[in-house]
Structure formats: C-alpha cells, structure tokens
Computed example of a mutant assay.
Amino acid sequence: MVAIDESEHSAYALKWTLDHFFTPTPNPIFKLVLIHAKPSAISTLGLAGPAEVIEGDARNVLCDAVDKHHASILVVGSHAYGTIKRAVLGSVSDYCAHHAHCTVMIVKKPKTKH
C-alpha cells in the first residue's frame, strides 16, 4: 500500500515502490493499493491498481486502510518538515509508524547536491 498526495515526496515514494517491489514479470508477487486521504473526497484515482480517495485525517485513513486491505507494508513519503512545523501539523509518517498494523517504510527523497 502506498500513501499518495499531490507532493513531490509522495510521487518519489510511489516511484521508489515501483522500482523496488515490482518487476516486469507476468505474475507479480505484490498487489499495489494506492490511498489518498483528502479533507473531502472528490473522486477515485485511475492509477495502476486499486486506488481510493478517502475523506478524513490522513493518519486515521491510512491506518484504517492498512487493516481493511490486510496490507503487509505501507509506504509513505517524508515531507522532511522541521521540528516546529512537524509539532504543529503532526507527522503522518510518524503516526503510521507507531499505529499501523504492518511494516511502515518511510521514503525520503534524496537532497540534490549543488
């Protein structure tokens, strides 16, 4: 299961997942489920595999989706918020790491070198 939103961190986490868990074989080992938590649901995404846009707080939506789909791993991108922003907004990845009933992989987008 991959948590997605409109951020480049989310896109990187999805690409990382596809690169590391999926190969061009006729019988894939894994089933991919994409979950997008929104304050108000507007549509279902048409990406590779089952996808859901679910209304609600991302922390709760993701942990509930893990249980619903019996996910063995949840991949989330890291927004790399600083201490203050993380304290105010909360960290979805940190919450999921502590509350999801599966392995949680937090994928960080590498910083570009100048």
Rank of each mutant, 00 (worst) to 15 (best):
I35L: 13
T25A: 11
F21M: 09
K38G: 07
P26M: 10
L34K: 15
P26Y: 05
K15S: 11
L32F: 00
H20E: 07
H36E: 13
K38N: 13
L45M: 08
A41L: 09
A41V: 11
P26F: 07
W16Q: 06
T23H: 08
N27S: 08
D19I: 01
F30P: 00
V33K: 12
V33S: 10
F22S: 05
S40F: 11
T25V: 15
H36N: 15
T17A: 12
A41K: 14
P24W: 00
T23P: 02
P28S: 07
L32G: 00
A13G: 09
F22D: 08
A13Y: 05
D19H: 06
S43R: 10
I29G: 06
H36W: 13
V33H: 14
K31S: 10
L18R: 09
L34M: 13
H36I: 03
A41E: 13
L14E: 04
V33D: 07
P39C: 05
P28R: 02
S40I: 13
T44R: 10
L14T: 08
P24A: 02
I29M: 12
S40K: 14
A41T: 09
I42G: 07
K38S: 15
D19Y: 03
I35E: 10
I42V: 14
D19Q: 12
F21D: 06
S40Y: 11
I42D: 12
K38H: 12
V33F: 12
I29D: 07
P24S: 02
T44P: 03
P26H: 11
K31R: 14
V33M: 01
P24V: 01
P28T: 02
F21H: 06
N27T: 10
T23C: 02
T17M: 04
L34R: 15
S40N: 11
S43G: 11
I35V: 15
K15I: 03
T23Q: 10
F21I: 03
K15D: 11
K15M: 05
F30K: 01
K38W: 05
L34I: 12
F22V: 05
N27H: 12
S40W: 05
P26E: 14
